[in-house]
Nucleic acid binder design. Structure first.
Lengths: 356, 356
DNA sequence: TTGTAAGCGTTATCAC
DNA sequence: GTGATAACGCTTACAA
């Protein structure tokens, strides 16, 4: 073998053991925390490891112990911000647990099926699956494995495993509550029908929130269309452009931030003050929301929490054996509501949410 | 150890060898393609592997051969679409090469430095680094490794390794050419000054394009501001809202799609036809661009090509030994211009770019 | 071409 | 608690 390609790093456990004058078994125990005492031996080992710039060879460790310290993530190829934020959140949680993150991105359900199968084979301690938009129930069909699998997001429990998702109903209820607490007595809802079942669920919950919170919504104020800026602009011009005597809502809730920004622009054009005369909220935060003027109050899924919960479920499954063996249920279903990021487009209220 | 946790998959190379009635060495050779003949033995081995649902244990393979078939990607925590698309492109290229992708996301230059150092230790055959926005030259300081490292994007060669980036100058020249070919003789440019050195480079190239292509641009048509929808709306109202006799450009080029969408809305409000009276182009595609009306012509970096080139450079470096040893230069620098995705906001021209 | 056998660096087992 | 030693599953000289 050419000299150009050798060990990446000269130090192995043997060198550390020699320098610390102990056996390799002791080094392994000290460095993996299986030896609790913090005596002279432990210090010597740690010092030697530091001096040699040693870190364990994960391949050897994985081979011997069957623990790879690796989480695998399978997700679709959407270029949506949500997806990017999910990866970031999971990466941070995985790093915090001193693990590595393996990512596979596929644009079809079939490719994702192959990917998950591949992940099951060997190198992952746990698998997180964000199902492709139109994936069927067959995502894990024919796959039998001891590797814990959890589904993140998606509209239905496709995998028959643990499932972490967003509570759409609770989310919009929080949005309506937010504007009502700030004085609104009537609300419009510009729905984005894209995620069909999600959209329907949200719309239903919106209507029940109206009753619960005694808020009025004219049927012309509830529209279903795409999530573009222009749609928000056009809907607002139609709703609010009818002269001073027209009946208009005191708050507008939009599925997408783009739509909400269209609303803001139209209201600005009509010289209607936000949040003074009308409050505006988006159910889904994006980068533009924070930099619009007025800055847009919007909602965001607690992805850090969801990522942490994913790892917790995986760790549990590994500790207890596969969930399906010890637990006859399909799998736990944990739902998180989105949280309100209060910005300038709604009135200041009693609470103050921090804007990350 | 509890029975719940054993081998992920019962089949190992020994089982395959037994079933195919050959030695494990032969199995290894057949399955790794080191044995070219396709005779009865090869078929028996492949059949046995298939029947046992066998796939190599990557940990064992990596341990023995020092080849992990893994590419590591370090990137910042931007939630921008560009970042998401980069990961997708790299993931696809890596999968096509039958490798795995390890991802680490960090929000500070220091964390990224640690990450790259960690990646260098063991489990990666090559490392792709997207530098944090404000990373200094110290990203790989103190890191010595045989693992090939390449920098993707970023404004300067921070790593002193091979570097793949976007040709901003060529990109805007292509944008100007695009509208000029379609009849524009005067152009406005709504610049986004965020990426300071990128922005400056682009602005400079814009101005030299004007001379080269004999296009006019009033100094009031070149503005530098944020990349929001509202900025595009406001700038357009100012430029075009001055009555019918005002001097207005025949094309508007925007750094960001959001800004361009603001331009479209304002022009619609002013009843100015797009692309008939004014063409609009964005230098950076996003999801909203395709769904606006009229659909927005915009530019997109050829990320698939850039990802493939990254892997090619890594493979080269591995084959030739570390670049720095055999090649005294800092590293190759490969630049790709963005490509025009022609949509409705510019007139139909001679060529027709496909919209992926 | 094929089989035999020696490792790769680590963790688990078993004596002490 | 510590140290010797045997695995883990694979690739690769080397011998046949």
């Amino acid at each position: 073998m050419a000299s150009s390609h050798g060990k990446q790093n000269g130090a192995s456990i043997t060198n550390v053991a020699a320098l610390a004058d102990v056996s390799i078994a002791t080094v392994s125990r000290v460095l993996s925390g299986r030896r609790t005492k913090d005596d002279d031996i432990a210090r010597r080992v740690r010092k030697a490891a530091r001096e040699l710039n040693y870190s364990v060879n994960s391949a050897a460790s994985a081979l011997r112990s069957d623990v790879s310290n690796t989480i695998a993530l399978s997700m679709p190829a959407t270029s949506t911000l949500m997806a990017a934020s999910v990866v970031t959140a999971i990466s941070e949680a995985v790093s915090a647990a001193h693990m590595q993150l393996l990512v596979g991105i596929d644009s079809t359900a079939a490719a994702q099926h192959r990917r998950v199968k591949e992940f099951c084979r060997h190198p992952a301690d746990g698998i997180i699956v964000l199902p492709c938009p139109h994936a069927g129930m067959s995502l894990t069909r024919g796959i039998t494995t001891d590797t814990p699998i959890i589904q993140l997001l998606g509209s239905t429990n496709l995998l028959r495993h643990d499932w972490i998702s967003i509570d759409n109903g609770a989310s919009i209820e929080l949005a309506v509550t937010h504007v009502v607490e700030r004085g609104a007595t009537s609300v419009a809802y510009l729905s984005d029908a894209v995620g069909s079942s999600d959209g329907a669920e949200t719309l239903l919950a919106f209507q029940s929130s109206l009753n619960m919170l005694r808020v009025r919504a004219d049927s012309a104020w509830i529209t279903i269309d795409n999530g573009t800026v222009q749609r928000g602009f056009a809907d607002t011009m139609r709703m609010f452009g009818g002269g001073t005597t027209a009946d208009v809502p005191e708050a507008v809730i939009c599925s997408s931030s783009d739509t909400a920004i269209g609303v803001l622009i139209a209201l600005g054009q009509l010289s209607i003050n936000v949040p003074g005369q009308v409050q505006v909220v988006s159910l889904q935060d994006n980068e533009a929301a924070a930099s619009s003027s007025p800055a847009l109050t919007s909602m965001r899924a607690p992805l850090q929490q969801m990522a942490a919960e994913s790892l917790r479920l995986i760790a549990n499954a590994r500790a207890n054996g596969t969930g399906a063996e010890t637990d006859p249920r399909l799998g736990r279903h944990v739902m998180f509501p989105r949280r309100v990021i209060a910005r300038e487009s709604t009135r200041e209220g009693t609470d103050e949410s921090a804007d990350a």
